[in-house]
Nucleic acid binder design. Structure first.
Lengths: 212, 212
DNA sequence: TAGATTGTTAATCGATTAACAATC
DNA sequence: TAGATTGTTAATCGATTAACAATC
């Protein structure tokens, strides 16, 4: 009750994709029921945390028995918005952008890269399989034509804010940012920063700790 | 005092690369002194948090004045292990692996991709600029020859654990994992998971919330 | 009913923030 | 000295964990 006042912790949301993956595997091999203990062990968290996470979305399990794999899987898909097929735009058809465009793992998550954008005239019109490279000035019309949902920013840091502005003006409400800069966006636009260098520098820090 | 008992929060470590970047820019344009307020504003955090983070490493600022940009920059480099030049191995010479190998941003962080590894005989011997593709069986001798520090895993999920085992046996103590699986490693090996799909599904979740 | 496992509460842990004394 | 800004304390906030009543 009072569902409307319960805030889902960010940490919970970020674990849902992990639950999705474990459940997909179990479902694939035909396992009908799984306990919180089993699932948690596969992911490397406590069963308590898993049950707490799922409890934010109501009683999804069966006491004394466990969780129905295909039911829970369907619920998590729904929560993550995976019942909608999401269309990605990739802005910046460089090495990272084209690598992402070619990534095969999106489809099983109901995600699909539908367009690349760049300013380099030499790249306009290129096709990576089905995916065409358009000029950045076509962002708005192509967004509407191809029903693009998420703008992926893979341009150099210096161009990221400008490109983000264009994406916001084109109507994107979700920005997946690979440029190492803090983007300014209106309140109703979500940004997810994917700053890869942070990860490897964290490792570098641990290496230094170890050797001294 | 009692430095040896103070544990640095993980959240603090993960913000150091952001401080490094802001300080690099300031240093580059010749700004000698910066306040916690100015730096924090550029990053989008509170000045309180920035001062707290830095306080774990001792008194790095000057009361009433601020922080000496080049001194603080040097300190953060040292903490992040950036005074050592780190050599990366990339295991998996697919799209993501080769895109990372070609990323230009590593060098300014004192990181360098020195070798690619793969099992596909057709790729062995390829060169991406200076970087050669070796067979995965050469992991150990090449690690020693090229003084490789960090193993980057960009193979498909199904092969990730096996390849990680080989990296651990070759003596790697740091694993930068892009495969969407939980890797089993000995206690003294650090793993950083870079699960890209988590990020984009988080955005997908927010989009669903909004439209419903 | 007996056994098992969820859902939830309360305790704990860790990270962030506000406020201000210390001090340049 | 007066003004400014750090470094640190204590309060707050949020996330994790342990424990167990509810219930299949």
């Amino acid at each position: 009750m009072k569902d409307e006042f319960v805030v889902i912790p960010k940490a919970t949301i970020s674990r849902l994709p992990l639950y999705f993956r474990v459940l997909s595997e179990l479902d694939h091999v035909g396992v009908p029921i799984v306990s919180s203990e089993e699932m948690a062990a596969k992911i490397g968290i406590t069963s308590s945390q898993l049950r707490k996470d799922l409890s934010y979305f109501g009683g999804l399990g069966i006491r004394g028995t466990g969780y129905d794999v295909s039911y829970l899987l369907a619920k998590i898909k729904e929560i993550l918005g995976m019942n909608h097929h999401r269309h990605l735009a990739i802005i910046g058809a460089g090495k990272l952008g084209t690598a992402l465009a070619g990534y095969g793992g999106f489809l099983q998550h109901n995600l699909e890269v539908k367009a690349l954008f760049d300013i380099d005239e030499a790249k306009i019109g290129w096709k990576l399989g089905e995916i065409e490279v358009y000029h950045i000035s076509e962002l708005k019309p192509r967004k509407e034509e191809l029903k693009l949902d998420i703008a992926t920013i893979t341009v150099p840091a210096a161009a990221a804010q400008q490109v983000t502005k264009a994406a916001v003006e084109a109507g994107f409400k979700a920005i997946w940012n690979f440029a190492p800069v803090r983007l300014e966006v209106p309140e109703d636009v979500h940004v997810r920063n994917e700053d890869l260098v942070v990860g490897v520098l964290t490792l570098s820090h641990h290496l230094s700790r170890k050797n001294q």
